[in-house]
Design a protein around this nucleic acid. Sequence first.
DNA 1: TGCCTGTCGATTGGATCCAATCTAACAATC
DNA 2: GATTGTTAGATTGGATCCAATCGACAGGCA
Lengths: 228, 228
Amino acid sequence: MGGAVTSLEGIIQSGGRRYRTATEYVEATLKQAILSGALLPGTPLRQEELATRFEMSRMPIREALRQLEAQGLVDFEPHRGAIVVEITLADADDNFAIRSALEPQALRLSLPHLGADDFALADEVIAEIDGETDPARMGELNRRFHMTLYAAAGLPRLLALTEQHLVAADRYLRFHLATDGDMGQAEHRALVAACRSGDETEAVAVLGRHLARAKAGLTGFFAARAAT
Amino acid sequence: MGGAVTSLEGIIQSGGRRYRTATEYVEATLKQAILSGALLPGTPLRQEELATRFEMSRMPIREALRQLEAQGLVDFEPHRGAIVVEITLADADDNFAIRSALEPQALRLSLPHLGADDFALADEVIAEIDGETDPARMGELNRRFHMTLYAAAGLPRLLALTEQHLVAADRYLRFHLATDGDMGQAEHRALVAACRSGDETEAVAVLGRHLARAKAGLTGFFAARAAT
DNA sequence: TGCCTGTCGATTGGATCCAATCTAACAATC
DNA sequence: GATTGTTAGATTGGATCCAATCGACAGGCA
């Protein structure tokens, strides 16, 4: 490990940050577009159209769509093409049931390995959320907050699955900015406090309430939408 | 709905059972092969070779591999190809952590909607397991048993995710037939009993023990393998 | 009128071809 | 002798082309 080489770190990193293949690029871009709401639910994704937009052939598009299908972000019907998955109450319920199972588990496994640095980072994110008004950015920060507390679990698949469903939930929320605009900051603070004192039972309980509250808000939104 | 058409049911069904696209067929076949252990962990999956074996071009193979990648069944490295995912202790731990979160949740949500039919079906499957010696078939039956108790949850994504990880766990088990050969039938019976009496707390507790036992067995297997 | 049928355009699925990248073996240099 | 540079073969990524399927619409028939 020579000292002179360390200066290359940043360059290598940013080089590695670039996409190694067109399919990767398309997948990441479409994923972002779907989750951010830029592509509305139900939007048909025509391969030819995407190909011209991305300035490449249909092939990388096809492979990217296949991967998004496996991730549950698009619905694929043979010979009929792909559409952005719809947002329904049933899906939201489903998502919350999964999150309510995964997140407490991740928290339990992570809690014993959390240190002062992690709590400080969590506090920082909470503060950032306080100062933020852009809903898209708030969703991103909310996700970062949760994942910060789970990260020490050290189980990559559990964490990836958890984050995936957190991101999906964020997508639901993005379509009902209606709520008070508060992401449950009181609960966020209570959660960090419980974690700091190492109280697993309390932490899991707070997290459970936090998720239940988010679910209630979303259910209310769907009820309101159905009523109009 | 003419009566003469009903005789076609079987044919239509088996026709519908057939794959609508080559990619679907390849995906299902490879999935089965990987999970059943026919394709050993670490096996490189060369597109050209698979193409000749399946008697088609590389294209459906490529798309199928991409989907398997998204499902976590193969590892994909750009320009280097796909290999069957390795089986490691870390992965097994990860898998059990996920199952331990999802399955109790599925059971809790399903329990209130379970009826006598479901319990009878569960009993049947238990009996079948008793009379079975083929480990592959036992894994399949074990999966059926668990999913029977969860099915009434009525949340498709939660159930699909649960089943996916059950199947993956089965793959781990297939490589250590070493264990007593008993899939925890005593716990299976206790689980059904608890469900019958509607005792959620007890049912979830039994399920937790069941999963912990399976995990302990698998951990022991890895320890033994590392020691050799 | 209402339903079935067949044809046409649009779109996706699959095959073939070429380019880019990786792996491994070998030669050259220090 | 070890390391680096080079080159050839294998393998995957991407482009282009053809075939199969779907949806809509028009026309025939009871």
